[in-house]
Design a protein around this nucleic acid. Structure first.
Length: 816
RNA sequence: GCGGGCGUGGUGAAAUUGGUAGACACGCCGGCCUUAGGAGCCGGUGCCGCAAGGCUUGGGGGUUCGAGUCCCUCCGCCCGCACCA
C-alpha cells in the first residue's frame, strides 16, 4: 500500500484552523423557513485544572449528535461555557492566596484550549463564564424576579452546617449526614437563610416528568426525591395546655389504632409542654442529646428506638381516647408537622417503640400473620360505621367524616424541601439586597445591577461570609430611603448559576435582558441534553424549577428545559472513580498527544455503550488508531488513482463491485439507525470498521469508482466521531467539505439480495445451512430444506411432526 | 428494607420484533513483505474432542417448534433512596 502515513496532528491542525477562521459552527438566531432547529447541549463544565476523560466522553457524544443533526438538515445550536463560581477555586485561594478569579481564568484558558484541540464543533461566539459580571448581573436580576413573586424568601431555619467549609448546605448536598463536598459530618444550626420556594412547584415538577424523554431511572430518582404522599392532617388536642397538634398521616384508616403520640425533639413545643413538671429534666437531657448528635448516627436504620415520655396526653379525635405523648428522635421535624400519631399495630417503627416502652398495641386492620401489619384488609375494632369495610374505602370516608367534624382534612406531603440558596462564601454571585434599618430588606434596583464582587485578600472562612470584612463594600445607602444600609454578604449557591445558563446561550450578548423571548423560543427546549447521572437530582431539578418559574413570569414559553436527556456512564480506573487523591487520573491530553483527538474521541465511544460505566484500559486504543490510519491511507491511495470525483454507486455493478457497494449501503443504514433514537456509537463505529475492512479485502478486484464510493462513504460516516480524519479523507476523494454534505442515504436496491442463507434446524438445533432464493415461498423453502443431506442424517427414520418455516431465515423440523 | 440496573469467550463487547450466539476490537497463533520490525497486508482464534460430534449467554425451573432475549426462583455485583409517618 501507499507509503503515505496518517499524521493526525497535522490533519487535525489543518481542519481546526478552517473551522476557526470560517467560524463554521456559529449559528444565528434567525429562523430559516423549512429548516428545523436543534439545540444540543452538554452539561456546563466546572473549570478546574484540565478537562478529564469524563469531559472528553461527554463532548464526544454531544458533538456526534450535533454533527448528525446538522447533516440531517437541522440548524444546530451547540454552545460552550463555564460554571466558574464555586468552592474549589475559593479553597485553593485560602491555601495559596491566589485570587479565585486568576485560578479560574487559568482553568478556563486550559479548557478552551483542550476543547479546540479536540475539535468539538462549538459556537464560540456564545461562550461565557458564570463568574463574569455580564452573566451574574442577570443571575441577580432573576433572583430579584423570584423575590418579587415570593419565590425567594428569607427565613430562620434549622439548617445543615458544614464545619469544614464553614457554610450552609442544601439538603441535596448532604449525603448520609456528611458534606457532599468535603465529607465532614454536618451539624444542625438555627440560622437566617435565603430559600427558593421550590416546594410550590412540587406537583408540577412531578407531573411534567411524564412529558419529557428522560431515562427511566432518572425520572424515578426525581419522583422519589419529590416524595409526594397523599393522606390527611388530623388534629390531636392536648387538653392540659389547650393546644391543637395536627399530625400528617397516610393511613387515617388506622386512626382507631393510635395508642400514643410522638413529637420530634426539635418541635418548638416540647420544652413548653414539660416546663415546671417532673419530666422537664429528663426531656431536656433527651432533647439536648438528640440535637447535638450528628445526623448520621441519628438516621441509622439499625438503631434502637429511644425516647422519653412528656407526661402529657392528647385526645384522639375519632374516639375521644386520651393517649400519652412522647418525644423521640425517630420523628423528624422537617417532615409533616414534626409530630405523629403512633399506630403500633400497623407501623413497624411505632411497633418497635411500643414494644420497647410497653405501650398498648391495638389491631384495627385484619390481615397478615403477625403484627405489625402494614397491608390492606377489613377494618376492625374501630367504630361500627367503619368496621367490616375495606380499609381503603374506610380511609376515604373517615377523612370525610373528620372534615365534617372539623378535626382534619385531606393533605399532601412532600419530601422535597425548599432550596436553601445562600452561602457564607466569597466566590459566588452576591445576593442583590441591602438591609436598611428603616426599610428592612430592600432589593437592589435593576439599574444598579450587577452588585459586583469586591476584591478581597483574606478568603478564610470564619463562620460568616468573607465579604463581611469588606467594610467599604458592605456599607452602602438604602436605595429606597437613602439612609445607611448594609449589603447582604452571603453569595448564591452555584446551582443558581447553572439553573439558567442554557437560556443565556440563546442570546448571550443581550444587555437589556437575560435573554430575548423570541431567541429563547427559537431554541428552547434543549433537544438533547447530555451529562453525568450525578446530576440526576440536584441540577436537573433546579433547572426544571427555574424554567417553570420563568414560564410563569412570561419570560419563556417552555415548561421544561431539557426535552431529551442522555446520561453517560462514568469512566473509572481500577474500578474506582478517578480522583486526584487516589492518583488514578488519566489525562486525555496524553492520548491526544500520542494518537490525536480523533482516535481518542472514537476510542471513548468505541469502548462500550455510552450510558454504561467503563473501566479505562489502554488496550484497544491502538485498534481504533489503526482503523483511522487504514481509512486515511485508503483515501490517500484511492484518490491517487481517481483524483477528486463525485462518489457514485454504480447501480449496474456486479461481482466484487456489487458486494463492496452493498457493504457501503449496509454501513449507511447501520450507522443511521444507530444514531437515530439510540446512542449506538460503539456499533456505529464498528460498522464503519467493517466497511473499511471490506475495502481492503476487495481492493484488488474492484473498479476504482467502487472503491472511491466506499471510501468516501466511510469518511462521511465516521465524520461525526472523527471529524478531522473524516473531513480530510472526504476532501481528498471529492474536493468537498463533508460537513456541508447531506447525510448519505442507503438505497434499498443495494440492501436486497437474490439469495439468503437458509438455516435448517431439527428440534431447534442448527443442522445445515443452504443458499436459498430470497423470494422463495414457504413451500419452496421447505422443499429445499428437505433436500439437505444433513437433515436426512439427523431425522433418520424419526417422524416429522411439524415444520416451521420462517421466510428469509430458517426451516425448523420438529421430529419425534 | 424499598426502588432501579447488570451478569455473554482470555479481555472490552455485539445480537434492532423470540429465529444462525460471540459482529467489531484487544490479545494470542500462523503466513506474506522486509536487512530488520513493536510498521504494513492476509488468514486463524468460544470451550471440550484426533475426529465425528458434543457443550455454551451467573445457577435451577418454566412457556415455546425455537429463549441471551419472555415468566418464576436462587446467587453475585453495581447505583439510588433510606426511621418521610
Amino acid at each position: 500500500m501507499s507509503d503515505m502515513r496518517y499524521e493526525p496532528h497535522e490533519v487535525e491542525r489543518r481542519w481546526q484552523s478552517v473551522w476557526e477562521q470560517e467560524r463554521t459552527w456559529e449559528v444565528s438566531n434567525e429562523a430559516v423557513a423549512g429548516v428545523e432547529s436543534s439545540y444540543v447541549l452538554e452539561m456546563l463544565p466546572y473549570p478546574s485544572g484540565e478537562p478529564h476523560m469524563g469531559h472528553l466522553k461527554n463532548y464526544s457524544i454531544g458533538d456526534a449528535v450535533a454533527h448528525f443533526h446538522r447533516r440531517t438538515g437541522r440548524r444546530v445550536l451547540h454552545p460552550m461555557g463555564y460554571d466558574a463560581f464555586g468552592l474549589p477555586a475559593e479553597n485553593h485561594a485560602i491555601k495559596t492566596g491566589v485570587h479565585p478569579r486568576e485560578s479560574t481564568a487559568a482553568s478556563i484558558a486550559s479548557f478552551q484550549k483542550q476543547f479546540r484541540r479536540w475539535g468539538i464543533s462549538i459556537d464560540w461566539s456564545r461562550e461565557f463564564g458564570t463568574h463574569e459580571p455580564r452573566y451574574y448581573r442577570w443571575t441577580q436580576w432573576l433572583f430579584l424576579r423570584m423575590y418579587e413573586r415570593g419565590l425567594a424568601y428569607r427565613n430562620e431555619a434549622a439548617v445543615n452546617w458544614c464545619p469544614q467549609d464553614a457554610t450552609v448546605l442544601a439538603n441535596e448536598q448532604v449525603v448520609d449526614g456528611h458534606c457532599e463536598r468535603c465529607g465532614s459530618e454536618v451539624e444542625v444550626r438555627q440560622l437566617e437563610q435565603w430559600f427558593f420556594r421550590i416546594t410550590d412547584y412540587a406537583d408540577r415538577l412531578l407531573e411534567d416528568l411524564d412529558s419529557i424523554s428522560w431515562p427511566e431511572h432518572v425520572v424515578t430518582m426525581q419522583r422519589n426525591w419529590i416524595g409526594r404522599s397523599a393522606g390527611a392532617e388530623v388534629i390531636f388536642r392536648c387538653p392540659e395546655v389547650d393546644v391543637d397538634y395536627p399530625v400528617f398521616t397516610t393511613r387515617p384508616d388506622t386512626l382507631f389504632g393510635a395508642t400514643f403520640f410522638v413529637m420530634a425533639p426539635e418541635h418548638p413545643d416540647v420544652m413548653k409542654l414539660v416546663a415546671g413538671t417532673d419530666h422537664e429534666q429528663a426531656v431536656r437531657d433527651y432533647v439536648n442529646k438528640s440535637l447535638t448528635e450528628g445526623q448520621e448516627s441519628r438516621g441509622a436504620v439499625e438503631r434502637e428506638k429511644t425516647g422519653v415520655p412528656l407526661g402529657r396526653s392528647v385526645i384522639n379525635p375519632v374516639n375521644g381516647e386520651r393517649i400519652p405523648m412522647y418525644v423521640a428522635d425517630y420523628v423528624l421535624m422537617d417532615y409533616g408537622t414534626g409530630a405523629i400519631m403512633a399506630v403500633p399495630a400497623h407501623d413497624e417503627r411505632d411497633f418497635e417503640f411500643a414494644t420497647k416502652f410497653d405501650l398498648p398495641i391495638r389491631r384495627v386492620i385484619e390481615g397478615g400473620d403477625e403484627l405489625p401489619y402494614a397491608g390492606d384488609g377489613p377494618v376492625v375494632n374501630s367504630h361500627q360505621r367503619f368496621d367490616g369495610m375495606h380499609n381503603r374505602e374506610a380511609l376515604e370516608s373517615m377523612v370525610d367524616w373528620l372534615d365534617d367534624q372539623g378535626m382534619g382534612h385531606r393533605s399532601i406531603n412532600y419530601r422535597l424541601r425548599d432550596w436553601l440558596l445562600s452561602r457564607q462564601r466569597y466566590w459566588g454571585s452576591p445576593i442583590p439586597v441591602v438591609y436598611c434599618e428603616a426599610c428592612g430588606i430592600v432589593p437592589v434596583p435593576d439599574d444598579q445591577l450587577p452588585v459586583e464582587l469586591p476584591d478581597i485578600t483574606d478568603f478564610a472562612p470564619k463562620g460568616r461570609s468573607p465579604l463581611a470584612a469588606a467594610e467599604d463594600w458592605v456599607s452602602t445607602r438604602c436605595p429606597s430611603c437613602s439612609g445607611p444600609a448594609r449589603r447582604e454578604t452571603d453569595t448564591m449557591d452555584t446551582f443558581v448559576d447553572s439553573s439558567w445558563y442554557f437560556l443565556r446561550y440563546c442570546d448571550p450578548q443581550n444587555s437589556d435582558a437575560p435573554w430575548d423571548k423570541d431567541a429563547a423560543a427559537e431554541w428552547m427546549p434543549v433537544d438533547q441534553y447530555i451529562g453525568g447521572v450525578e446530576h440526576a437530582i440536584l441540577h436537573l431539578m433546579y433547572a426544571r424549577f427555574f424554567t417553570k418559574a420563568f414560564a410563569d413570569m412570561g419570560l419563556v414559553d417552555t415548561q421544561e428545559p431539557f426535552q431529551t436527556l442522555f446520561t453517560q456512564g462514568m469512566i473509572t480506573r481500577g474500578g474506582a472513580k478517578m480522583s486526584k487523591s487516589k492518583g488514578n487520573v488519566i489525562s486525555p491530553s496524553s492520548y491526544v498527544d500520542s494518537y490525536g483527538a480523533d482516535t481518542t474521541r472514537c476510542y471513548v465511544l468505541f469502548i462500550g455503550p455510552p450510558d454504561q460505566d467503563v473501566d479505562w484500559s489502554d488496550e484497544g486504543v491502538e485498534g481504533v488508531h489503526r482503523f483511522l490510519s487504514r481509512l486515511w491511507r485508503l483515501g490517500a491511495e484511492v484518490s491517487e488513482v481517481t483524483g477528486t470525483a463525485e462518489p457514485v454507486a454504480d447501480v449496474a455493478a456486479s461481482g466484487d463491485d456489487l458486494e463492496l457497494l452493498r457493504k457501503a449501503h449496509w454501513a449507511i443504514e447501520k450507522v443511521t439507525n444507530d444514531m437515530t433514537g439510540r446512542f449506538g456509537f460503539n456499533t456505529a463505529i464498528s460498522a464503519v470498521m467493517e466497511l473499511v475492512n471490506e475495502c481492503y479485502r476487495r481492493r484488488e478486484g474492484v473498479a476504482p469508482a467502487s472503491l472511491h464510493f466506499a471510501a468516501a462513504t466511510a469518511a462521511s460516516l465516521i465524520f461525526p466521531f472523527a471529524p478531522h480524519c473524516g473531513s480530510d479523507v472526504y476532501d481528498k476523494l471529492t474536493g468537498h467539505r463533508v460537513w456541508e454534505q447531506p447525510w448519505p442515504r442507503a438505497e434499498q436496491s443495494f440492501l436486497e439480495r437474490e439469495t439468503v442463507e437458509l438455516v435448517i434446524q431439527v428440534n431447534g438445533k442448527v443442522r445445515d445451512r443452504l443458499q436459498a432464493p430470497s423470494e422463495a415461498s414457504r413451500e419452496e423453502l421447505e422443499e429445499l430444506a428437505r433436500g439437505s443431506e444433513k437433515l436426512q442424517a439427523n431425522v433418520d427414520g424419526k417422524e416429522i411432526v411439524k415444520v416451521v418455516v420462517v421466510p428469509g431465515k430458517l426451516v425448523n423440523f420438529v421430529v419425534r
